[in-house]
Design a binder for these strands. Structure first.
Lengths: 259, 259
DNA sequence: AGTCGTAACTCGTAAGGACAAGTGACGTCA
DNA sequence: TGACGTCACTTGTCCTTACGAGTTACGACT
């Protein structure tokens, strides 16, 4: 039995001791930690205290617990999938996104009509309750098992000026970009990256382990005169994926375009 | 006492009931939830069960608990601080970053020497154990109380060719870019965005609430011949900040540059 | 030899009790 | 009136006990 007594609550001392043991390499990644009973004996505390300590380490994403088997050290591996958020244009005029080929569609895309919320309306420079075409996709990368949720929103206003989008909503993003280009637009994109804990349904859909945030990418396609045309959202587990961008210095200082 | 009995464990049913009440608006954001004793009576369960349910909602980031006061509904507000990850060049040649003016330095920057790890070595196209200058800054936005951790790493190899960086390590990023430009480099940058749960020390330093991931931005400055020159890291609570980028279509398809 | 049941391990859930610690309001006392 | 102590509330910590449920291995039975 190892005596412990530094800061704060008992369970925090136990958690700190285990954390230290993991980070110092005493317990290798993927290896099995002592069972709850063994930890009770090792530190001379009750089971709730051990479980409380384990819960804290779980919330930190340091360990993973499997019912009936035990607690395992989670490998702190970097994300394996890098989403290159670039858009290229092939000589034949087609748009190409670097990663688009790794994705399968795990389900049939669902196409629907909806209205702007306060948040989506602001991004599209529209009011609230404006009509939109929506298309949701569940993407899956078969090789790594990674999943992602993708959504495309096209305002009626825009679809009216680009008939191909109204006639066949739910096209893939590169196809949407091509239709907009055919309609005379010169495109650029703004994208914001947020992170947050998943809602229960997102956790289930994306099959996320404990203590795993999601990356939430929001892309707005801008056309001629910087008009906001299309809104896309991509949600993906942050344990698997990272987003990558390229930046070049703009010649003039701080010219204001809308977000 | 409200009877409940749907799916799974008791505490999950209680958690689901409370979650539903919050999302339906029965409990407004920032409002006080019933106390543990009241929830015990309301659902007819024991205190550990109530606390377990509350712990689940806490981990989702839905509520916040204050010792001695009670549980409060967390407002799901969007991040208030948008980090515009652009780099502009003023007519006088100075580099300007859109958000740099909101930050104060909460502490004196700490300058030190270190060596590449496997991860940082790969990003800088160096091996392991190569020598670096390091500079850590703790940034604070006084108006919103947001904090961020910033780190700059400059390889000795690079500092040797740009004496201004070796003589005065720990300059601010825009000054570093200017020195590199003065040394004859034409710069571009690659940046990756990851999200993860904070380590305990990050949680303390950034003063993060429960269930708050951090955004981890990694920027590599590239110079002439695409050589990797400088590595920067920015860590910031994802509840407060989002990162924003601009994308323009590249003319040629998928020409491979290193990450 | 193969199948299947059981036993012994793991963690998950739920109850009970007890006391510590933070918070705020009320009332007493100087 | 003002200061301060107490009390009633809150959540935090820790213990004991009990049983349910998933996993694995061993051994007996077919």
């Amino acid at each position: 039995m190892t005596e412990i007594q530094r800061p704060g609550a008992l369970y925090q001392q136990v958690a700190a001791a285990i954390r230290e043991a993991i980070l110092s390499g005493e317990f290798a990644p993927e290896s099995l930690l002592p069972s709850e009973a063994q930890l009770m004996a090792r530190y001379g505390v009750s089971r709730p205290t051990v479980r409380n300590a384990i819960a804290a380490l779980r919330a930190e994403g340091l360990i993973e617990v499997r019912h009936g088997k035990g607690s395992f050290v989670r490998s702190d591996g970097q994300p394996t999938l890098t989403l290159e958020r670039r858009i290229n244009r092939a000589p034949n005029g087609q748009f190409v996104m670097p990663n688009s080929d790794v994705w399968d569609e795990a389900e049939e895309p669902s196409v629907y009509r909806t209205r702007t919320t306060k948040a989506t309306g602001r991004l599209l420079n529209l009011g609230e309750e404006e009509e939109l075409f929506g298309c949701d996709r569940l993407l899956a990368d078969a090789t790594t098992g990674t999943r992602a949720m993708h959504r495309t929103l096209v305002p009626f206003e825009v679809a009216e000026t680009v008939p191909a989008l109204a006639e066949e909503p739910g096209q893939r993003p590169t196809a949407v970009y091509e239709e907009l280009t055919n309609a005379g637009h010169t495109l650029w994109w703004s994208e914001t990256v947020r992170a947050r804990m998943p809602l229960p349904d997102e956790r289930a859909t994306l099959q996320l382990p404990d203590a795993t945030p999601i990356l939430h990418l929001t892309r707005v396609t801008h056309g001629t005169a910087d008009r906001a045309l299309v809104l896309e959202e991509l949600r993906i587990g942050a344990d698997r994926a990272e987003a990558a961008y390229r930046i070049t210095a703009a010649k003039q200082p701080a010219k204001r375009r809308q977000a």
